[in-house]
Design a protein around this nucleic acid. Structure first.
Length: 422
RNA sequence: GUGAGUGUAGCUCAACCGGUUAGAGCAUCGGACUGUGGAUCCGAAGGUUGGGGGUUCAAGUCCCCUCACUCACCCCA
């Protein structure tokens, strides 16, 4: 081991990844426990799928034409020659697990949630990282539009529970395989007519993904897009009824939302309902969560014909919106003087820890003054004092650092005092 | 992948027109102070000025390359 020569800044976190340090990690823990409890109250169960999957899963599930698959995946060949990918999203993994384990035959509600890291080889910027974390929620085999509304309401409930208010909920219907092709065609024709007024990017989108023209921020394109046909005019009766059902159920909840016919999502597999919650104000990466229905994915996997709906929430983006004060922790610091006292300190610390008290022992062997200074710096609520006098009596002193008061007693009695105020 | 901005101590920042050994505050550690914290005073440690190359008698400062970060495009959580 090299005692000196601390490594210079050659060893850094990989681009686009971040350490979540103590101080911030408490916020994450809070978010995770609140979310898990809430999801379970809606009948969801945690399903932990692997971080790595066969590359093919995402090619088929996420879609070969999506940006995620064409240029953002962390893919490598393992030592067995398999093409493996660090998951860029979670939904395909759940669908795979259902097919693999035939979870659809258990007769249980197919409601799953998961919290964990995802990986996309993007260029990092505010709110966008290469390793980021999502809370993912999926419901399968429920086609009633009230379920769409319920899941949106649950997302809203999560944000409200965490004290997030500056958001807007957007919903849309992107139709299904019966009605969307006609709409895409109509859109291509409309866009083709004003081709010379569109930016180069959008001219390309006419062929590749005409819905995305609505996303463009160039004013000329926005202006042109206003005259384009709306998806609502093209929905088949089934999709139209479904969307009306979603809105009716949302109204039942009294939830505020905005129908945004221009909202398109980047994943190919969505059908009917899509939705997004965006943060008001702030940067450009403002989608806190997004999701929708995907009625064809399972079938496309060669599995049973089971519909699905879900959303993914970006934990980094959520945490950035929170202003949670850390909960004060009350800890004990054990100071001591002399070899025997040190041994007693170690013994008593174990006792207090087993009783559930956060306890640290002074190991630097400094004078009492320095030890108290240390305790103060660490923000200890109490200091347990062990010196020759205390050892002789079997009675120890306990100082309340905030009050500055000090009591004396046997370890059990002192523990009782701490537990009372903990 | 494209574009712009920024890189000086752990953090926040100085350093004149290119000119001696790159400074300060905060934080850290030690001492004053071996039976009691916060205050004060004293001191120490901490830097290849992101890295490499170039111009110059001389570069933290100017030029080029590169890396990282930030922001935006694209896309998305």
């Amino acid at each position: 081991m090299s005692a000196e020569t601390p490594a210079k800044k050659e060893l850094t976190a990989v681009k686009g990844t971040h350490d979540i340090l103590p101080g911030e990690v408490e916020v994450w823990q809070k978010v995770e426990t609140v979310a898990a409890r809430l999801f379970e109250s809606y009948g969801y169960r945690e399903l932990r799928a692997p971080v790595i999957e066969h590359t093919e899963l995402f090619e088929k599930g996420t879609g070969e034409t999506t940006d995620i698959v064409t240029k953002e995946m962390y893919t490598f060949v393992d030592k067995g020659g398999r093409s493996i990918t660090l998951r860029p999203e979670y939904t395909p993994s759940v669908a795979r697990a259902i097919v693999e384990h035939r979870l659809d035959l258990l007769g249980l509600p197919m409601r799953y949630y998961y919290i964990g890291p995802m990986f996309r080889y993007d260029k990092p910027q505010k709110g966008r990282y290469r390793q980021f974390h999502q809370m993912d929620v999926e419901v399968f085999n429920e086609k009633d539009p009230a379920v769409d509304a319920e899941i949106i309401e649950m997302a809203d409930a999560l944000l409200r529970t965490l004290g997030v208010t500056q958001t807007e909920t957007l919903i849309n219907s992107v139709g299904c395989r019966a009605c969307r092709p006609a709409y895409s065609q109509a859109l291509r024709e409309a866009a083709g007519l004003v081709r010379d007024r569109l930016c180069p990017d959008c001219r390309r989108k006419i062929e590749t993904n005409p819905l995305r023209i609505f996303d463009c921020k160039v004013e000329g394109c926005r202006e042109a897009a206003r005259s384009f046909p709306k998806i609502s005019e093209f929905l088949c009766p089934e999709c139209r009824d479904h969307f009306a059902g979603v809105r009716a159920a949302l109204d039942l909840y009294g939830l505020r939302y905005k129908v945004d016919p221009n909202m398109v999502r980047g994943l190919d597999y969505y059908t009917k309902t899509t939705f997004e919650v965006i943060a008001l104000g702030g940067g450009q990466q403002n989608a806190v969560l997004g999701g929708g229905r995907y009625d064809d994915m399972m079938k496309d996997f060669g599995g049973p014909d089971i519909c699905g709906i879900g959303f993914a929430l970006g934990v980094e983006r959520l945490v950035a919106m929170l202003a949670l004060a850390p909960e004060p922790r009350k800890s004990l610091y054990v100071v001591h003087m002399g070899d025997k006292a040190r041994a007693e300190a170690i013994r008593l610390a174990r006792m207090f820890r087993r009783a559930g008290v956060e306890t640290l022992i002074e190991y630097a062997g400094r004078g009492f003054k320095a030890q108290f200074s240390r305790a103060n710096k660490l923000g200890a609520a109490w200091v347990l004092i062990i010196g020759d006098d205390e050892l002789a009596k079997g009675f120890f002193k306990l100082k309340d650092m905030a009050a500055g008061t000090q009591i004396e007693g046997a370890p059990d009695a002192l523990l009782a005092v701490i537990k009372e105020k903990q």
